[in-house]
Design a protein around this nucleic acid. Sequence first.
DNA 1: CGACGAAATGGAATCGGATTCCACATAGCG
DNA 2: CGCTATGTGGAATCCGATTCCATTTCGTCG
Lengths: 203, 203
Amino acid sequence: MDGRQGGGREPRTPMRADARRSVDALVEGARAVFARDGVDAHVKAIALQAGVGVATLYRHFPRRSDLILAVLESDVDACVEAAHELAAAHPPMDALDLWLDRYCAFVLTKHGLAAALHSDAETFAGLGEQLLERLEPALDALLQATRAAGMTTDAASAMDLLRAVAHLCTPGPAHAAYTRRMIGLLLAGLRYGPLPRPRRTSP
Amino acid sequence: MDGRQGGGREPRTPMRADARRSVDALVEGARAVFARDGVDAHVKAIALQAGVGVATLYRHFPRRSDLILAVLESDVDACVEAAHELAAAHPPMDALDLWLDRYCAFVLTKHGLAAALHSDAETFAGLGEQLLERLEPALDALLQATRAAGMTTDAASAMDLLRAVAHLCTPGPAHAAYTRRMIGLLLAGLRYGPLPRPRRTSP
DNA sequence: CGACGAAATGGAATCGGATTCCACATAGCG
DNA sequence: CGCTATGTGGAATCCGATTCCATTTCGTCG
């Protein structure tokens, strides 16, 4: 990755004003086009929507995944903030549950992009990790609170849960109810701890 | 879908012998190439491996997903059989747990293909449903047994679980331990039932 | 304030691979 | 054995991603 504008906060070389304008337009355009056409939207459509040429797109986002990542980052930040607010406004277990709901809604909305996060191709390798790592401290704080209250076991880490929910959410918005039910089950498992595994008797 | 060779068992018009040979070669070739190059393998590579022309490939499998589906079907059948064997050899809860393990291993092995199952594109729409529907009665039998023994609630159906595990497995073989842990949690949730949801206090 | 060099830009050119087309081959049948 | 519908290979076509480069614009420094 270039690291100049996608993930990094502090560009070493101050970016030229027109370049910053292009990047912003591109991210906004990509958000709109991804929402309309899905994650496999044509590169040209994004450039058109942003009002720039394709070369400009490629200059700033050499790989498609860079663009996806950029689009997702602002949503992630909103999720992090929601965690703090919920923690302040609710008892630990409720805050945890409600935040998972919030996170789930985020992944559901962006499910097309989220699917790309764990595509098998190298194109997307490690793309999602960066997002999850940003989310991790927020969820970890919620979890620490429920653990301190004796409401959950440590059978799964914050990262574990983040991944699990992200995966559970991939089927798409039509299955929102299903997803929420599965997350509820997962949470109950976390509450009571895993079952003892059976001993294998035959191979 | 064509329905002549992919999913259907009984072709209405008896297929010509050379055509059947092509189909078999294609499926075997695709299995090999997918395993080597991943689900995005070049169409040409598959045709080459099968020793046929690309037109032949397209004639029998107009869409890529048809080929993927064909490759997966035999593995699914093995899973169904395993369910029956485990049910006969173990107590209900153990059989369920062990079978989920088996199913998880299957999805993990074919995770590249499994990822395609819930891709957002229409290309793959409904592709996985067919497989899950074949698996569903097998798991349902296992679940009925655990329910009869009072070991699980009906908080999730067989189909629910099938989907959940399939999704949980998508990260890939490297995360096998993680996946198994999450499934354990899910199972514990199923054992004890979901937690009551908190009432929403602020929007 | 007004050049000048580096960075950025747009659109045309290129490239790669999926999909389609069609003239030829062969199985299955009388 | 010959006839017809079905199946086949590979060449032709099409489509979109990626790269290239002549031109424009920014930001700075004299």
